[in-house]
Design a protein around this nucleic acid. Structure first.
Lengths: 245, 245
DNA sequence: AGAGTGAATTTTGCATACCAAAACCTGTAT
DNA sequence: ATACAGGTTTTGGTATGCAAAATTCACTCT
């Protein structure tokens, strides 16, 4: 049986503790900490991939990326590896990183999983939402409806993301929220290029959903979210089968 | 609008292709490719964390790990970062890696998500399973029952994992399978130390589930898996509330 | 003694340089 | 054309250096 004895140099049982310091209640909560470079690189690359500056299948050469971004290879490598674990690139051994090539099948699987997760989060949210939360939901809903009226696609996509993200938060399940975050972002990547977001009916469904949440009707909220996400999935398939003229 | 013009040196549109080479039908299907070191390190550290050689909260110093494993800092860093994205360690900026401290709440959230995902996979599996698959399921079931009879905890845990993993595979949804893999592994980490696996009843539920899958009864399979995983969740809470004497 | 302070130490994060092995590409000879 | 033999590119890993941040330690002042 494995003994709980650390094979590493003993640094004391507690590790480090957070030091308090004599901060006499100043206003600023935290010193400006520049984000780790690898994080910045990660975000930059993710953005480049999502907006298709880097095309699916493209070979990403560490040295080139490093030069382009003005950093060394190290943070680039680290970013690429994180991008891999999250499905944005494929890292072939001894060959490097290639922007992931989404397949039809994979998109469907993602949408399927998304449906399940979002449905669960709607259910939980309906059980936990306070009147204030509901108020906020209606605000987000209005934002979406306005964007729809203005035919501002970008704003519409953002509003949709905000609304779903907020419901996710309301679920109170951090693990669930993180997973949805991952899945959603990839779904958007697959989905956005081929189609404008579903319009009027999607926001009608949102309204129904919010009403169910306000009424704390767990069952109906669940039902509506399932239908809502499944319709999105259908819409995806219809559009991929009929390529834009 | 963003133009699809690559900011990177042009390396031709195709990237690299796989070369065939004059392999005159030798037996070995693939050249022995030693796993990337970062991968090996990742697995080694994950193992050390799961079996609690590295205790939760412990500060992991790159240089120490590197020396202990006989590699340089680089692969260790890369492994640590992957461990972070998968929830095994927390990487505090400028402070390094600390083995993740599981909280009661987080465990519950994980079990909740796991329940949803596994349920979905059971549903899909029931719709797709062939008679051969069912045969294999019964084999795995028997393995578990035998381990139970022999009171071989380790074997029991392995059998349980195999059975669930196989159902996951049967779902035909790779994305789902990967997510479940992630979640399950963490669940096991949280769960194992405080309690022996649920015994007799869990395997009875498994048997029911397999029957439902064999009958291609999607609804019942779904139902049983939900109950099964929710019971596991309950069992977790009962055991955490009553610490072992 | 206890609290505060300032310097020494440790550790991370990143850069740079270097190298072997693998994969890829190209030109030549058949 | 095809096969082969180099030459080139790229990865994956090692080693080293160093600044900034965090921690720890030693010291001084009360």
């Amino acid at each position: 049986m494995s003994q709980p004895i650390s094979p590493l140099p003993d640094r004391g049982p507690t590790g480090r503790r957070t030091a308090k310091g004599p901060l006499s209640g100043t206003a600023s909560r935290r010193v400006e900490r520049p984000a780790p470079l690898r994080q910045v690189v990660y975000e930059a690359l993710a953005e480049l991939i999502v907006n298709r500056t880097l095309e699916p299948g493209q070979h990403l050469v560490e040295a080139d990326l490093a030069e382009y971004l003005g950093v060394s290879r190290q943070p680039v490598r680290e970013a690429l590896q994180r991008l891999q674990t999250e499905g944005w690139v494929d890292l072939k051994p001894a060959q490097g990183a290639f922007v992931h090539l989404p397949t039809e099948e994979e998109a469907d699987q993602l949408l399927s999983v998304r449906s399940v997760l979002e449905t669960h989060s709607a259910k939980l949210a309906a059980g936990l939402a306070t009147p204030e939360d509901v108020k906020r939901l209606w605000e987000l809903q209005n934002e979406g409806v306005e964007a729809l009226a203005a035919e501002d696609i970008e704003r519409l996509v953002a509003a949709n993301a905000s609304l779903h993200a907020f419901i996710t938060e309301l679920s109170g399940n951090t693990v669930l929220a993180e997973l949805i975050g991952l899945v959603d972002r990839r779904v958007r990547w697959y989905y956005t290029p081929i189609a404008r977001p579903r319009g009027r009916d999607a926001w009608y469904e949102h309204a129904q959903l919010i009403e169910a949440i306000a009424a704390k009707d767990v069952v109906v909220a669940e039902e509506i979210m399932t239908k809502h996400t499944e319709r999105t999935r259908q819409a995806y398939h219809e559009r991929t089968q009929a390529p834009p003229a």
